[in-house]
Design a protein around this nucleic acid. Sequence first.
DNA 1: TATGAATGAGACTTCATTCAT
DNA 2: GATGAATGAAGTCTCATTCAT
Lengths: 201, 201, 201, 201
Amino acid sequence: MPKIVDEQMREATRRHIIHQAASEFARLGFDQANINTIAEQAGIGKGTIYLYFENKRELFLAMLRLIAQEHIAAIRTALAQDGTIEQRLEWLFGAFARLAQQERDSFNVYMSALYGVNRSFQAEATRLLRDYVTTIALLLEQSQARGEIECSDVEATALMILSLTESYILSAIVLGQSEQKILSQANLISKLVLKGLLPSS
Amino acid sequence: MPKIVDEQMREATRRHIIHQAASEFARLGFDQANINTIAEQAGIGKGTIYLYFENKRELFLAMLRLIAQEHIAAIRTALAQDGTIEQRLEWLFGAFARLAQQERDSFNVYMSALYGVNRSFQAEATRLLRDYVTTIALLLEQSQARGEIECSDVEATALMILSLTESYILSAIVLGQSEQKILSQANLISKLVLKGLLPSS
Amino acid sequence: MPKIVDEQMREATRRHIIHQAASEFARLGFDQANINTIAEQAGIGKGTIYLYFENKRELFLAMLRLIAQEHIAAIRTALAQDGTIEQRLEWLFGAFARLAQQERDSFNVYMSALYGVNRSFQAEATRLLRDYVTTIALLLEQSQARGEIECSDVEATALMILSLTESYILSAIVLGQSEQKILSQANLISKLVLKGLLPSS
Amino acid sequence: MPKIVDEQMREATRRHIIHQAASEFARLGFDQANINTIAEQAGIGKGTIYLYFENKRELFLAMLRLIAQEHIAAIRTALAQDGTIEQRLEWLFGAFARLAQQERDSFNVYMSALYGVNRSFQAEATRLLRDYVTTIALLLEQSQARGEIECSDVEATALMILSLTESYILSAIVLGQSEQKILSQANLISKLVLKGLLPSS
DNA sequence: TATGAATGAGACTTCATTCAT
DNA sequence: GATGAATGAAGTCTCATTCAT
């Protein structure tokens, strides 16, 4: 069964390359990042990268997909536990805040892909955006079923929550606020959202 | 006084170049945009650009500054009229929605600068972000003075409103929603915000 | 005696590789042909080729030698039967025409080696050229002994016949003439040559 | 009128590059020839070549076209004077012999293009082939009009003469014969051809 | 013996910037 | 001041060859 070992090795190398690439792409962006440098940092030959990825663009996309997987997994984990809607919204916010701080590279890459000009990158990043929305929409539906909230357009509301959460955190980071300060807003945000979603009666 | 005329000419040419550059930068991003193409589209010689801007980077920054001026002016105009806080929040949302749709190029450039990886571009885009926050904070303070709302941390709340507004619109656009649909959310958003900010009684 | 079997196997594999290589070299030329593709088409590993040939160049030369052997054998076979000089010249022309059409790949390879710029390839192709000339010279000497023709410089005349035959066919092919049309010139050509070589009386 | 001077300069540089390129292409072939080296030998910057030619392939084709022009001009000049058909055939042979020796580079390049595998190069080289055939066909028609020769298929005969001439010379060169020796065959060749074309009566 | 993953030299081409006109 | 021809650094990608398994 050397096949399996080889497959594992191959996958490991693939991930290793993606990891190093992510660091470079996050630091310099797609165009400024240098395949040579990525190879060096990955401790492999220049040509080796092309055994794993068709070209620079595909490497970037593969990295984007990996980031998306990891982020969506982190968010799902944060929402896995049961709890009141308020708690869960706070967890969501906290999960995003942690991702944005601890995985700043991935976050930068993801955001620049989402709001950058390269359409194929944007398309890939958009998929993650959709996954986020779906995950949050599920959360809202569960809460609605329990009568905790009242929500006419679940999709739109989910998007609103995501936008608020994600963008708030990013803006705060860009404006130089500390993780401490950002996390302390979790309660404020979730309260704000809830007030807007509470059964009006 | 040919000096002044010359100065005016020079400024006019400068703006003309920036304008053409904006179109290219928005379409292709900083790295992919081509100085030669920009010069052609501006109807001037390639070398002439270097009489007005030190290099490509400075041209980009100048463009970023111009965009920022235009956007902040649009927002201020939208909030210039008096009105209830609910109305003014709707206007704010509408102004952003219109900018994002009608000035999509500038918006793309601004967003990719803000969330991109080039620090000096980010710094410039951040200034616009600060201006936005300040403008909204002013709005909140006025409303608070009138007793319309109650708000403990004006800065944070302003950031929250900006984030919610801007990010909601961008996400919606990226997800392919029509301008119609987006504008129809204006009321929902402003209500949501207000509920969260209303005196708790 | 596994040694002999192994030797036979080795030789068989060698020929197999050369055969596949010929197809690629004919299609793409020496530089554009790809060792990897050749290996794939031969159904062996890339490294295996280097167990049979020192490098790409040697593989090409080996192929050139094989082509030369096959071609010269075809020509000799065509001239093996006895006949009048006119008949034999027609057979010669026919043999070349058939080679050029049916073994177009080898012909291309041979011609590009002969008239190409790589000196070592040219040297190898030249050997085939010499063999051709020698074979035709032999034919002429036999005819001269029989008094069919009169020929002062056998070598030069042989070269002339070869040139006329080979080049006429190639030019005709390049100009898009059908095999039919080309073969129909066999009689014309041999008559032309004969008139030039006939005893002047 | 700097336009005309510039046009002339541009054309001069263009020819200069083509000239240097021809030397490299003749020495190494299309694939092995190096744009860097060509630029160096032309005494210009690497990028400058791309101001005159779209890419390596186009440079090669431009060179091929220039060679074709020069060669066909040389042949036409050789046939410009009036004379008997025998004389003119000898001049033709001589012109080819001189071209093949003195412009050996161009001849190599042209032949490798004609018999190489790159179809677009072949197409270009074929055009020269056709021009040759046309020129020779004209010669034959003139002679036929004068009753010097009798020729049923002028095109085919022209091709035959060209093939014989060109290929004989090239083979002779490849086989290492001196220019002296080759030129001394002119009479033999033209006699051979004429015998074949003389009115049979 | 056979393999094919890894390598890295090397090639083409682009494009921001300069500078002579 | 305006120009655009010239430059050459730099970057992506290919592919012949090696070598550990």
